[in-house]
């Protein structure tokens, strides 16, 4: 994984910062592993590890701790498209003020998506295992996907259906480069409210979804560069293609696993 380009370390860095959540999960554990701060000798004093949440007055109940909520969600729980359009619009405007080019713009959206995808990769199989759709069926424990095609079809169908309520419209392999796969989406839901101006026509706001896919591929052990491209056609003027460019090591492993 050393031959990855500069995008991945920054993504990894931003992901690794989530490890602080472990202290939230077990707030009673003693902070034995953390080094004691010595603010007198350090230029930047390290703050004392505080308890994760401040105490509340006794007559108030905390209702919004995310860890207290039940893991299963009611099937069909959806977010209104209008609400999403406003949020995504703000994300785009916020990002646009802080970037200097379209490449950086897409990278930032990609990083945002990466943070979503790395969580989904854990959450979806666990949720399906603990709370299967049919209560009669006892599902097998979640297994690790070893081969490329199953993980691609997992992204194309299961992940896509969870995110957008329907599978993606196509899953293709590039005819020119054998390390490139494409997931086509004729009308991407997340960018439905966005109309990219002509002078920024290379920009595809689907970079957010590309980031989600990249996190899932990376996390499942299929490191890849994932990018989104607008490919308008006459029947589908808002068609977006998610291009997955796999690392050489993945292809080498596929070849080694061979016809098993």
């Amino acid at each position: 994984m050393t031959n990855r380009d500069s995008l991945t370390p920054s993504v990894r860095d931003s992901i690794s910062s989530t490890s602080r959540f472990s202290s939230l999960l077990s707030p009673t554990s003693t902070p034995s592993t953390t080094t004691t701060p010595r603010s007198s000798s350090s230029t930047f004093p390290i703050p004392q590890p505080s308890p994760s949440l401040p105490p509340l007055p006794p007559n108030l109940k905390r209702t919004s701790i995310i860890y207290d909520r039940p893991l299963p969600k009611a099937r069909g729980t959806e977010v209104a498209l209008g609400a999403w359009a406003f949020l995504f619009s703000e994300i785009i405007q916020y990002t646009q003020k802080r970037v200097s080019g379209i490449g950086e713009f897409e990278k930032r959206l990609n990083i945002l998506g990466y943070r979503v995808g790395s969580r989904l990769l854990e959450l979806l199989p666990l949720r399906d295992y603990l709370y299967p759709i049919s209560s009669l069926r006892s599902p097998p424990p979640p297994t690790r996907t070893l081969r490329l095609l199953p993980i691609l079809s997992y992204v194309h169908s299961t992940l896509y259906r969870y995110l957008f309520g329907r599978p993606a419209d196509s899953l293709e392999r590039s005819t020119d480069n054998e390390d490139e796969y494409m997931i086509g989406d004729d009308d991407m839901v997340v960018t439905r409210g966005v109309e990219v101006p002509k002078e920024m026509s290379e920009l595809s706001c689907g970079a957010l979804v590309a980031g989600i896919v990249e996190a899932v591929m990376d996390g499942a052990g299929f490191p890849a560069r994932v990018t989104a491209h607008s490919v308008p056609s006459v029947p589908h003027p808002r068609r977006t293609v998610i291009l997955i460019k796999l690392d050489p090591e993945v292809l080498a492993r596929e070849a080694a696993l061979g016809g098993k």
Binding site: A85, S89, E90, I91, I92, Q96, G193, E195, P197, M200
Partner: peptide, 19 residues
């Protein structure tokens, strides 16, 4: 109102959009 959700449209400005 739907068009106002477009991040590249500035409110109160002329609307030039084929969609």
């Amino acid at each position: 109102a739907d068009h106002l959700k477009d991040p590249f449209y500035t409110a109160e400005m002329p609307i030039r959009s084929e969609a």
